[in-house]
Simulated assay, not measured.
Amino acid sequence: MTAKTPEPAAWGELRASHSDRDAVVEQLRGAAAEGRLDLDELEERLEQALTAKTFADLAPLTADLPRSASVLDPGEPLVLKGGFHGAARTGRWRVPAHITAHGGMGGVRLDFTRTECRLPEVEVEVYGEMAGVTVIIPEGWAADTDGITTGTGALRNKTTPDRLPDTPLIRLTGSVGMAGVVIRHPNARERRALKREQGK
């Protein structure tokens, strides 16, 4: 009998990375500089942030703080063109507030699952064209596809509407073209890979 694959961990149970902890530390220090935290509060929260194991450990430390301007920097717009060989943005990369993806002949793949986006909203302007565009967002992120115009291809939105606090809304605009546009959460294989990485 084949063993059942364990379910992926819930968002709060996922292991926090060094950069996750560093981002919280930066926000706490900024809040103290603005007078939102006194020195005792800052010291206590910094200690908790530096020893945090999971996102559930980190989240309460900044839940009562506004986001700083530096965290909300929209960044330079990103343009990806599939061309003949395709294009992709995967792994750890900085997410700007606006992304344009042209499927072309080779297709485009946008994978947000390893990013650390703190923007409240990201506009992804997609043009499916001949090979299509695939967008992968983490569990807990939500998508709005009302801005996409139809074409000969299909729009397949396989995401759930359940959006966790402090996660971005991915707002899709553009057109599906001939090959279509897919937006989804990680599949079982991708979830297993993520879980292996976070267990290191």
Rank of each mutant, 00 (worst) to 15 (best):
N187W: 10
A101I: 04
L169N: 04
G147C: 08
T159H: 04
I136A: 01
D166M: 07
V108N: 03
F84D: 11
T54N: 10
L172E: 06
A101S: 08
N187A: 06
A59E: 14
H85C: 08
I170W: 01
D166R: 14
G151L: 04
R21G: 10
R92G: 04
A143M: 01
T2Y: 08
Q27C: 12
D57E: 12
K53Q: 14
P120K: 07
V79C: 09
G30E: 15
V122M: 13
L42F: 11
A59V: 09
E190S: 06
A16M: 12
R196N: 06
G82V: 01
G106M: 12
E13T: 05
F112S: 05
T5Y: 02
L169H: 02
S68H: 15
I137E: 03
I183P: 06
A32L: 13
A101L: 10
D162I: 06
D111G: 11
S70G: 15
V124W: 06
R196A: 12
T167W: 01
D38N: 13
G153L: 01
S68I: 10
V79E: 15
G35A: 05
H98R: 12
M105N: 07
L110R: 01
E139F: 11
Q27M: 14
A56E: 15
D64A: 14
S68G: 15
M178H: 13
P8V: 01
T159L: 03
L46Y: 12
P165D: 03
A193L: 10
L50T: 11
H85E: 10
G128Q: 02
R171L: 14
T113Q: 07
T167N: 06
L155R: 02
G106S: 10
A97W: 07
R21I: 14
G140F: 03
P60H: 05
H102P: 00
G83V: 10
A32R: 15
T173F: 02
A52Y: 07
E123Q: 13
K200P: 00
T5L: 14
G106V: 12
T54F: 09
